[in-house]
């Protein structure tokens, strides 16, 4: 599903964010991306949804070489990739339903289908009782769930989450994790950048560790702490 071949990323200010990364993530995998702040986790995720292009090397997503992808096709790639940020990026001038519906509306889905799909996903996420609420009245955990709902309502092939449990208490974090596992079971490839040692150790999934932009370990059923 996702392949990287000798990917380097250097920013214009000469900061080297990623150094010679080669990796293969298969369809339906659940992968933790760990490492200290500044290790290059966010850059890694951005490369996948083509927020940025690599300075060197190739990134291939669902068979498409992103360096060769025409600018006008980028939106269509993004429709196959859901993204969840730590800082939510919600629209606070719209209610919960509209926030989720937004990602379907911008891709031109029919209203009747939007209604059905959004209600369904809100049910799964457990927010259907708050669909008319404004997001700023939701708790942190609920806001994060809302972001996940928005990211997966279009049933993407890949879900990228950037420290989704970063600001949440352990119980709420585990709830979010369970939600992500559920989405993974549907067949969505999930990549989760995380600092959360507790969650990583508990989940027993593949763990990719980055340090100063380099891939230092890649283990199946890995743990957070260095081996």
């Amino acid at each position: 599903m996702i392949r990287m071949f000798h990917v380097f990323k250097t920013f214009p200010n000469k900061v080297s964010a990623l150094w010679d990364i080669s990796i293969h993530i298969k369809k339906g995998e659940f992968v933790f991306l760990i490492g200290p702040t500044g290790a290059g986790k966010t850059t890694f995720l951005k490369l996948i949804y083509r927020g940025i292009l690599p300075s060197k090397g190739q990134v291939i997503v669902d068979g498409v070489n992103l360096s060769r992808l025409k600018q006008s096709y980028v939106p269509f790639l993004r429709r196959e990739i859901g993204v969840v940020f730590q800082d939510f990026k919600l629209l606070y001038d719209r209610n919960v339903f509209e926030n989720v519906a937004f990602s379907l509306r911008v891709t031109g889905v029919k209203n009747a289908i939007i209604k059905k799909e959004v209600n369904e996903i809100l049910n799964i996420i457990g927010l259907s009782h708050k669909k008319n609420t404004n997001p700023h009245l939701l708790s942190g955990g609920e806001q994060q769930k809302l972001c996940i709902a928005r990211a997966v309502v279009s049933r993407p092939l890949i879900l990228l989450t950037d420290e989704p449990t970063g600001n949440l208490d352990p119980d709420t974090s585990w709830e979010i994790m369970k939600l992500l596992f559920k989405i993974n079971i549907w067949g969505t490839t999930v990549i989760m950048a995380s600092h959360d040692k507790l969650m990583v150790d508990r989940a027993q999934k593949r763990v990719i560790r980055l340090e100063q932009g380099r891939l230092v370990s890649d283990t199946m059923k890995g743990v957070y702490s260095k081996e």
């Binding site: 939106p75 790639l77 993004r78 429709r79 993204v83 911008v106 891709t107």
Partner: peptide, 8 residues
């Protein structure tokens, strides 16, 4: 957000 969810 629009760009992220695939709006042209």
């Amino acid at each position: 957000i629009m760009a992220l969810v695939g709006a042209t």
